[in-house]
């Protein structure tokens, strides 16, 4: 498959997000007391963020050196806009659900923060998937 620079960039971000946050959330939600803040949980979160940033920087440097970097044009911006719209609707839906859970169930701040982060990550994944779909299929 002949991928453009932008598609390579999106694939890289998507896979990094899936792997690193997949590992992070598996560890957080399978912990014995997922609602408790402890040193390990904070270190795990900081490590996940640091690893994502490092991988993204290295990956984007590599594809910038090996692929032809093309500036965004109107179609890229249109696709990005549609992807952000989908991600926004999902994020808003998630946040309303989360607010309901906080009111009805009552959750600790740490669990709330992790569920909010989870919503953001899921929205980011949807944004990337929408972009990849539109680049290949429709627009």
């Amino acid at each position: 498959m002949n991928l453009s620079y932008r598609e390579k960039s999106i694939w890289g971000s998507l896979i990094t997000t899936l792997v690193v946050y997949g590992y992070y959330f598996t560890a957080v939600f399978s912990a014995a007391r997922p609602s408790q803040v402890d040193r390990t949980a904070l270190v795990r979160l900081m490590t996940a963020v640091f690893v994502i940033v490092m991988i993204e920087v290295i990956y984007h440097t590599v594809i910038a050196l090996t692929s032809k970097v093309e500036p965004k044009d109107e179609r890229d911006i249109l696709i990005e806009g549609k992807a952000y719209r989908n991600a926004y609707f999902l994020l808003v839906g998630d946040l309303f659900m989360l607010m309901g859970m906080i009111i009805l169930v009552g959750m600790t701040p740490f669990l709330t923060v992790n569920l909010m982060l989870f919503s953001v990550v899921i929205s980011e994944i949807l944004k990337s998937l929408t972009q990849l779909f539109l680049y290949r299929r429709v627009v």
Binding site: S4, R6, E70, D73, E74, R75, D76, Y135, V138, V139
Partner: peptide
């Protein structure tokens, strides 16, 4: 034209209508 090759491919295949400027 100042757009990406993928955009030209999409326009040529009638899959994307360019702006008036493009």
């Amino acid at each position: 034209v100042g757009v990406t090759r993928q955009t030209i491919i999409a326009i040529e295949g009638d899959k994307y209508s360019p702006s008036l400027e493009v």
